Amino acid sequence: MDEDRIEYIRKLMAESQLSDFPKYVPCLGLDIEVHKEVFWSDAARWVTEHLPPMIGKSVLEIGCGCGLIGLFLAKNGASHVLATDITTNAVENTLANARRNEIPNITCVKSDIFLAIDPDTKFDCIIWHMPSTYVPEDFEIASMIEHSSFDPGGSLLDRFLRESPHHLTPNGAIMLGYNVSRDKSIITDKLEQYSLSYRRIADKKFTPDSMINLHLYELKPIVVGP
């Protein structure tokens, strides 16, 4: 367990909660409000800016937070966005921002990854800017906001990569934002394990020490011929 990294992330999240709430952030043509216990960072904006166009596509966003990614896509051509999050605060925050920006083609529900998603519903694109700090399986999540950053036992990454292909249309794609920190093999080894082809669309070091080194991948299931 990387104690320095955990301490760094917890300090970052704690500092994000020191201001008054809701906070108001104009971003990418949207008027965003951020509620308490919902994490906001420039990384979400960066991911949104680097996603390919979703015109006419059905989109599922996992871990929507305040809703920036899903709302931007819904406003800019997606046919419909289903946004989900494991915390009630985030769901309520996304719905508030949908009303605030008068965006009708987005739905938001509480879900632990795919648990509340109809297994018969398929999406053209599934997106997750996911928690990327590995912690032991018995790690205690101290507050709701910590769901945005910690992955106990790596189970979130495994579940997402294993289950995502079952929710895609035949030509669908997965967009994964992942903080590789100093070792990109952490994610690329997993992608190979789950038979997913990958293309790195963009990357950015948000901190000089690479503590936050975000990669954005496009993933597709590898189809094995008969």
Rank of each mutant, 00 (worst) to 15 (best):
D4E: 15
I6T: 03
Y8T: 08
I9S: 05
E15P: 10
E15F: 12
E15I: 12
Y24K: 15
V25A: 07
V25T: 09
L28W: 08
L30W: 01
D31Y: 10
I32F: 07
I32Q: 09
E33C: 12
E33L: 07
H50K: 04
L51R: 00
L51P: 04
P53E: 09
M54H: 03
G56A: 12
V59K: 02
I62S: 04
G63Q: 03
C64H: 07
G67Q: 06
L71R: 11
L73P: 01
L73A: 02
N76S: 01
H80A: 04
A83G: 03
V91N: 00
L95N: 06
L95H: 03
A98S: 13
R99E: 11
P104A: 02
I113W: 14
P119N: 06
I126A: 01
M130S: 06
P131G: 03
P131V: 06
P136C: 03
D138A: 13
D138E: 13
F139A: 06
F139Y: 07
I141A: 01
S148L: 05
S148M: 05
G154F: 11
L156S: 11
F160L: 05
R162L: 15
E163D: 15
S164H: 10
L168V: 08
V180E: 02
S181A: 14
R182L: 13
I187G: 01
T188I: 08
T188C: 00
D189C: 14
D189A: 10
K190N: 02
S195M: 14
L196S: 00
R199H: 11
R200F: 02
K204D: 09
K205L: 02
F206S: 01
M211A: 05
E218P: 00
L219C: 01
